[in-house]
Amino acid sequence: MSQTTQQLDDRRAEGSSRHVGDGRTPVQVRRRAAVRRRVTVWGLGVLIPVVIVAVWQLLSQLVGAYLLPEPLDVARKIVDDASSGAFWGDVWVTLVEVLLGFVLASLAGAAAAVFVASVPLLERLLMPYIVGFQTLPKIALAPLITIWVGYGINSKVVITALVAVFPVFVNVLTGFRSIDRDALLLMRSLRASRTQTFLKLKLPAILPYLVAGLNIAIVFAIIGAIVGEFIGSSNGLGSVILTRQASIDVAGVFSVLFYLSLIGLALSYLLEGVTRPFLAWSENRDS
């Protein structure tokens, strides 16, 4: 039997209770299909980076290592940076800015959304401004913030928070709007107090929206911190990028990008791990 017809047979056998031709039960077939799927995922997981590195190597030879350093050079730089105390100092500075900005944005964004949602009139009045401000590239405010707050860490945290606050605010507000009218009516019919309605209905209902907002915010926070450092800073990964750019150390810039994505990944996974237990109910049943 050829590979493709075998797969077709398997697919047909899924969900049916009869035995397939060679005496295997549908459960066995399904289990084998699952194994095959896992092998495919692993295979691709190895294949994709290999292809990327190969293409990268090729390109670098085409355009010249000055413009696009070879993968091996970048890897060497990454290892170098890992053993440099000064570099970890810069990682730390950026990390602190990101985390402070993120926490500030989360608290302010969620609190503002709770406040706006609890006063319907306020929401109606503020909506045009919210939409207007939302479309404004917050990054463009960064130079202003440095004028107002100065060049220290404060300005980076403020810029980071400013960039990250909107996804939280808008998501939570959307969460409030998505609450079922009948569910609110139910709480009223049970004569629940405002606090009870908030704790037992609104808060759990907005939680998936809040988490979605936080996931965007953490990524935005990294952008905010880097841009803040671009505007004017003598430490942090953003300033490292600028220094290396000035000395045309392209491999060095790539190394910073590597560490930045590592920070992004780590923070995203951390966030997911922390929030997952609260969201089990909203996950898709079949995954």
């Binding site: 709480m187 049970l190 004569r191 009870q196 037992k200 759990p204 109910w281 909203s282």
Partner: peptide, 19 residues
Amino acid sequence: PNLLPWRNVAANVGLPLEI
């Protein structure tokens, strides 16, 4: 049915008493 999806069946039935 208008049940709260984050509560199990018993917690949904018990909601009025809880309140």
